[in-house]
Simulated scan of single mutants.
Amino acid sequence: MTKTVAVITPAYRAQDTLPATVESVLNQTHGDWQHWIIADDGFDYEGFLAQRNLSDPRQVFVTSGGIGLGASATRNVALAQLETPYAAILDADDRLKPKKLEMAVAALADYGIVTTALDVMTTEFAHLRHVGDGPDRVLTPGEHKWVSVSMDSMIVWDRRRGTGRYDPSMSNMTDLEFLLQLYRTIPESYHLGTPLHDYIKRDGSMSNGKDVATGMIRSKREILRRLESGYYGLKDEDVTGVAGFLRVSLDAEAAYAAALAAKPGLLFEDHLEPMLAAAQAK
């Protein structure tokens, strides 16, 4: 049976970062993949990569159909066309560790969703910290965010068991919102505690500037509203778990500006984790 993974990468003005992203896919030990590169800026990424000797017949180049439609709409273009059993998300400035797809596909034999620990890095690929590292484990929807406290665009999933679409109406947190859609039909995920995904922290995501913070707060409140209205159809204990994380995260957003002023360069994850630990200790 085929074990092809479609890796979905939306590209908007990604000329500076995409080569490293593409190279990380080319270096996968699991070679049964398609790399969907969806241009959201009208740029010829196929020709661009060929000029840099990074082209491969497993790459698929399509367009979002517009300019600047956003990552959610752009990812959905690929999701509407896929025929592979598995799919993964990879932003145009992030990278996969060489064994990520191999280890994820092995876990997908038993689980419908696989998440991995993150290697959080600067734009120069200098290590900042790990997120979600530790033992491999099965997680319920209510447990997931208490382990993986950062972004969720590192997922690999079985499309035959769960499906969804990214919500273009949300400015932030679309990766978590999409994951919650998958949890509707997949009751648990498998978390690989080895950091297998390089998450590049850009200036906006590192500092949570005013516009970023406003969008984060609005999006977290909307996901919380959907959760508590039964929108995702999760068990009560899972709603409680995700909602509890979001409430602590909203408190962290409110306090982050002052914490950052006191400690310039403070990562939001480093700010959030003690608050989560305190909430769990109650």
Rank of each mutant, 00 (worst) to 15 (best):
T185Q: 14
S189E: 00
Y190H: 05
S169M: 05
T140G: 15
K145F: 03
K145T: 04
W157L: 11
A126L: 13
T116F: 08
V138K: 08
E177A: 13
L179P: 00
Q181S: 10
Y190R: 03
G162W: 09
I113G: 01
A107T: 04
V114A: 04
V120A: 10
T115M: 15
N172P: 03
R129G: 02
E124D: 14
I186G: 04
G142I: 03
T163F: 14
H144F: 12
D119I: 13
E188W: 00
A107Q: 10
T174D: 05
P187D: 13
S171N: 11
A117W: 03
L182F: 02
E188I: 00
S169H: 12
S189W: 00
M121F: 10
S169V: 08
T140R: 15
V147D: 06
L176W: 05
D133M: 06
G142A: 13
H191Y: 11
V114W: 04
E177R: 13
I113V: 03
P135S: 02
S189P: 00
H144G: 08
T115D: 14
V131T: 10
A109W: 02
V114Q: 00
Y190A: 07
W157Q: 12
R129N: 04
P168C: 09
E188V: 02
T140C: 15
V147I: 15
D158F: 11
E143Q: 10
L128A: 10
M170F: 08
D136S: 07
K145S: 11
T140E: 15
M154H: 07
